[in-house]
Design a protein around this nucleic acid. Structure first.
Lengths: 196, 196
DNA sequence: CGGCTACTATGACCACTGTCATAGTCGGCC
DNA sequence: GGCCGACTATGACAGTGGTCATAGTAGCCG
C-alpha cells in the first residue's frame, strides 16, 4: 500500500476499490472516493465521463488484475510449489490483513457482484472479467504443478469460490476460522489432484 | 413461494430478504419493501421501531433459519444420504432457481455481510448467527453420515463457503458452471470423509 | 356509548447522492 | 504575448433515502 506516486486517475480507481471493499458499491460515494484519493472532486467527471458506473467497473477490473498478479507473487514465495501451498498463500493474504487491520474489508469483486449483478449489466460483466482474470493464472499454475489440464480450470474455480465464501464468513464472524478451516480441508484434495 | 397467508409483519421481513438478495441492502428501500409485501408503509415504523437496521437483521436471521430448515428437506429427498448428495442438493436449489428465474438474486446473508459488516455491528452479528444456524444442521447431517465429529463442522464450513462463492461467481458469469463445477470437484472429498 | 389499543395513512423533513453547468487555473506551444 | 487543451473548483439541481410527527381508522372491552 501507500504508493502516492500514482496519477490522480489511478488513485481514484484504487480508492474506489478500497471503499467498495468496505461497504459495497452504494456506500462508496463519489465525493468520498475523491476525498479518499486526495483528488479534486472536479476530476471525477473529467476522468470518468461515464459516471459512477465507469468508475466502479474500472475498480472491479483493477481488483481482478491485482488478484491475478498476486498469484505470480505467491508462487515466487513458495520454494516447493504445490496447489495446497498456493491456496494457503491466497488465504493467508486475508488472514494477515484481518489480523492486522480488522475485518472491515472484503473482496471488491464480490461486493460489486452482490450490489450490481441484477441492476448494472456492465458492472456484472466487469466482475465476470475480473473473476476470469483471476482464475486464469491460478489454473495455469495448477497445470504447471502437474494438475491435468482438464481439471486445472475446475480446481481454480473451486479455489476461488471457496476463498470468496470463506472471506464472507470470516467477516461475518469476525474470525479467520473459516479461512484456516477451508485451507486445511481443501489442501489434501488439491495436492492429490497434482498427481503422485 | 406465494404464501399470502402470513401476517404483514412476516411478509415485510420476507420481502426485505428478497430485495436484499437482488441488489444489496442499500438498494432495498423501506418504501419498496412495503410495496413488495403489499403492506402499508405506516406499518414499518410500527413493527420495526428499530428502523431499517432491525428489518434487515430480521431478514438475515430469517434467511439463516430458512437455509437451516432446507437441509432437513434435502436430506429427506435423498434415498441414499451422502455428503456429496447433500451438497449437490444445496447447489441444485440455486441452479434450478437460476435456470428458471435468471441470475437476479443471490444469498441475502452474503449481501448483508458485504454491505454491513463494517458499518452495522448488529447486522454483522445477525449474519454470523445466520451462518451458524445454517451450518449446524449441515454438520449434524454429516455426522449422521459417518463423518467424524471432529471434522463435521469444518466440512460444513467448507461446504457453505464454497457454495456462497460459487453463487457469487455464477451470478457474475450468468452461468451455473461454477455451481456444477464445485459440486463435481468437492464431491469425492466429502464422501471420502464419511468413511469407507 | 366512551375509551383504549393496535394498526394504518400521509405528508414533511433533512441528509445525502450522482450529475451537470459554469467558471477558473495552469502549462506548454506557436 | 495569445491561444488552447488539460485539468480543477464550486455551486446548483433534482431525486431518493430513512425517519419522524400527526392524524386517522378498526375493533374489542367495559
Amino acid at each position: 500500500m501507500a504508493e502516492a506516486r500514482r496519477g490522480p486517475r489511478e488513485r481514484m480507481v484504487f480508492s474506489a476499490a478500497q471503499l467498495i471493499r468496505r461497504g459495497g458499491v452504494a456506500a462508496a460515494g463519489m465525493r468520498e472516493v475523491a476525498a479518499h484519493a486526495d483528488a479534486p472532486r472536479g476530476s471525477l467527471q473529467h476522468y470518468f465521463p461515464g459516471g459512477k458506473e465507469q468508475l466502479v467497473n474500472e475498480a472491479v477490473e483493477w481488483a481482478g488484475r491485482y488478484a491475478g498478479k498476486r498469484v505470480a507473487r505467491f508462487l515466487a514465495g513458495l520454494e516447493h510449489p504445490t496447489p495446497r501451498g498456493l491456496f494457503a498463500a491466497m488465504a493467508a493474504q486475508w488472514t494477515e490483513e484481518y489480523a492486522a487491520d480488522g475485518f472491515a474489508a472484503g473482496c471488491p469483486v464480490a461486493a460489486a457482484t452482490v450490489d450490481c449483478a441484477a441492476s448494472g449489466e456492465s458492472t456484472r460483466e466487469a466482475a465476470a472479467t475480473a473473476f476470469a482474470t483471476w482464475r486464469r493464472p491460478v489454473a495455469e499454475a495448477l497445470a504447471d504443478m502437474g494438475v491435468p489440464a482438464s481439471r486445472a480450470d475446475a480446481l481454480a474455480t473451486l479455489m476461488i469460490s471457496t476463498l470468496e465464501g470463506a472471506i464472507l464468513m470470516a467477516r461475518a464472524e469476525r474470525d479467520v476460522r473459516p479461512l484456516t478451516t477451508v485451507v486445511a480441508e481443501l489442501g489434501p484434495l488439491l495436492d492429490a489432484a497434482a498427481g503422485p
